[in-house]
């Protein structure tokens, strides 16, 4: 942190991301980082546009400058506690029911991910 007005959530996260990217790039003798591939669960509420903007800002002067942040959103998946059916759901919706047995008793099984999957380097 310590970047004045840029003290926003995505910035702190992007700083952590850049550290990891540079670590792996250097360990693999990369000259440049071309792409950064992330898997981010829908519950995290992150947008590619903001991450890219902060990444561009923070990576200036490093071998990751110009790298493209590619964000794969992992949708929220739920499991029914009654019939064990799994289904995708919009968690912001108030009324979620199992599509198979109509039970309202369901729990989230995916959508929390926050992973750097890979980087593309030359």
């Amino acid at each position: 942190m310590g970047k004045g007005v840029f003290n926003i959530h995505e910035l702190a996260i992007t700083e952590e991301l850049l550290k990891l990217v540079l670590k792996y790039a250097e360990e693999n003798d990369a000259q440049r980082v071309i792409s950064i591939n992330l898997q981010v669960g829908e519950l995290r509420d992150f947008t590619e546009e903001w991450m890219q903007r902060y990444f561009d800002y923070l990576s200036r002067g490093t071998i990751a400058e110009g790298g493209k942040v590619v964000l794969k959103t992992i949708p929220v998946e739920m499991e029914c506690n009654e019939c064990m059916a799994t289904f995708r759901a919009d968690i912001k919706q108030a009324d979620i029911k199992c599509p198979d047995c109509s039970s309202p008793s369901c729990r989230v099984t995916a959508g929390n991910e926050f992973i750097i999957e890979s980087i593309g380097v030359i």
Binding site: I13, E16, L17, K19, L20, Y24, A25, N28, A30, Q31, I34, S35, L38, F114, I115, I116, E117, S118, I119, G120, V121, I122
Partner: peptide, 15 residues
Amino acid sequence: DEIRLINIRESILAD
């Protein structure tokens, strides 16, 4: 140069 893909599969907040 050819682009190499380095697999990481680590939490973004690993540090």
